[in-house]
Nucleic acid binder design. Structure first.
Lengths: 345, 345
DNA sequence: CTGTTAGCGCTTTCAT
DNA sequence: ATGAAAGCGCTAACAG
């Protein structure tokens, strides 16, 4: 039995069903302008022939691919993985597929990925992570493809984004520590060059101290890379050189947990001798002992909302505002002494 | 300044450069059969006009999309996230993009995703997770698109896959516990209906007991869903009803850590009173205290090797074998007493 | 080394 | 309600 043809097309279906390609196209796309009887006949032939629409051809003809590009720093990072889940769920809901690519936060790579995604004619673009360089703005604003940033913001407010108020969140987290009565609150932050996460959380920390008349001490600040190891090292150094500290705000859960373990290794009790609060609320936070107090960031929702916003742009639906701030949530568990917290203002 | 045209095509470049479309196509695709001078001229025009190749059109004409579909259970799961990273890195290396979709291990959803991916004309398919139903085999074997399974296997050996020897790995993990002298070794397994992970690890556990003449006791087996919570619950119940146990093999790191915490809560010391070994070696394993001993699964490599294998199929390169088993690695840390382990045979 | 000419499989007016 | 025909933007023979 020699197979007739490799691929069976809309034309084959049309011929076999005794109708035109246009009609087949209509039934495939659910166009109501088809007589029920005809529709049924066509559907039958499609079934028989095992016809599968070619989305690439459709994309070329219709100029819509129903796929969106997602540029993400690192999918193996729990924070971004959860965010991506939110994106994908909503994408599926609206019948979009996502092309995912890791940028490792490298500007050149990001640019290249965006370029490739655009060549692939994605209907929209979700950009997560780092800040935008001029080159980013250029390429992004030159295209007509809608873009929304997730877990990031655009100081120039030229782009749409969905995120949380990093400064305010960091400020509250630090306030918790001060409210517990700690006079020497350390910070294990992210790189200050990271304007999306590192710097704002540093700012929030400082603002909290200032607001509550606690002197800011340069030596109580250590910077890591958000990873467990760096939190561990930072805490160790802090405890050796600044033994007076009784609390620490870490800019990520991983660093917070690393810090706790360093403290434990040096004989400190958490939270009795040292209060620790993290940031993100990734699963790890509730899978360690003591349970980590942290700033709950709605990762899934950020992804979901960003994707939803993108679908609106793609469908030319009206959008109230392109800059959305989601609510974060101070979660007091076992690594801090305070057990209740009034949302600020 | 009114913009001339929405999209500038290869034709525009050709006209502007005074050559034919074919020539432009050649320089865009790096075809060597172009006189340097011509190439330069064309490149210039491309630059000037800001021409961006349309990958969809190219895909339709060439019947290659340079994108592969990836069906994954859940990207927010650390194990799969890491695996996906391996896939994506290699994909990028070979200039492929990946369309990622979550299946949540639901058969119907998997089928639908595969169908969609095929419509989108992916050049290859990576399928992770569950086992294959007849429907899966049907659709998969009907297409000419190469498929490789990752972190899964095909009992019928009809498909290509890359994974580890689950039974052997589970057997070794259990052996470690027995070698420590434990007489009552419990198992916190995955669903026995899960033929890819749950059942084989259960088998390995049983085989180890049998090989070392330790009686298999039904009551020492509890099943969870691989998540932290279920490990915690299982351990709690185990300790209450079977207080004689001094060791437990958990089929996932999350369950293992949950188990440790349950033990701690019930006043047991790990590993002094209770040895615990997990499976996977996700980051969590080295971010908790005590550090978790576990079966190290080369997640990244499984993804990378699977993707590499797929590229070979896509390029019609010869492939030695489509069934590859990667090495796992018993990692003894702090949740077990034994500190050295000779690789079996 | 370069140009011509068919399509790739489908959507989309425009008629009818 | 249905068909005819013109592309969508590019690749791939085939000539020369």
């Amino acid at each position: 039995m020699g197979k007739k043809k490799e691929t069976i097309t809309i034309y084959d279906v049309a011929r076999e069903a005794g109708v035109s390609m246009a009609t087949v196209s209509r039934v495939v796309n659910g166009n109501p302008n088809v007589k029920p009887a005809t529709r049924k006949k066509v559907l039958n032939v499609i079934q028989q022939l095992g016809y599968r629409p070619n989305a690439v051809a459709r994309g070329l003809a219709s100029k819509k691919t129903t796929t969106v590009g997602v540029v993400i720093p690192d999918i193996s990072n729990a924070f971004y993985a959860e965010l991506t889940r939110g994106i994908e769920d909503i994408a599926t809901m609206y019948h979009y597929n996502i092309i995912l690519s890791n940028s490792d936060l490298q500007k050149e790579k990001e640019l290249k990925l965006i370029e490739t995604l655009l060549e692939k004619q994605v209907d929209g673009l979700l950009f997560l992570g780092g800040e935008l360089t001029e080159a980013h703005r250029e390429i992004l604003s030159a295209t007509h493809v809608p873009v929304v940033l997730a877990a990031s913001r655009d100081e120039k407010k030229e782009m749409s984004y969905v995120t949380i108020d990093q400064i305010q969140a960091a400020k509250e987290a630090t306030s918790v520590l001060i409210h517990e009565g700690n006079k020497h609150v350390a910070l294990i932050g992210g790189p200050l060059t990271d304007s999306v996460t590192g710097y704002p959380r540093y700012l929030g920390y400082k603002e909290a101290l200032q607001d509550m008349d606690v002197p800011f001490v340069e030596e109580l600040v250590r910077l890591g890379d958000y990873r467990y190891r760096s939190g561990y090292e930072a805490m160790k150094e802090l405890l050796e050189k600044q033994p007076q500290i009784t609390a620490v705000f870490a800019a990520s859960d991983e660093m917070a947990v690393g810090a706790i373990h360093a403290a434990l290794d040096l004989g400190r009790k958490v939270p009795e001798d040292l209060s620790v609060i993290g940031f993100e609320n990734i699963p790890l936070a509730s899978q360690v002992r003591p349970l980590l107090s942290t700033v709950g960031v709605p990762m899934y929702d950020i992804g979901a909302v960003a994707m939803r916003l993108l679908t609106k742009y793609m469908n030319d639906e009206p959008v109230e505002t392109g800059q959305v701030y989601l609510q974060y949530n101070i979660m007091l568990r076992e690594s801090t002494r305070l057990k209740e917290w009034e949302e600020e203002k």
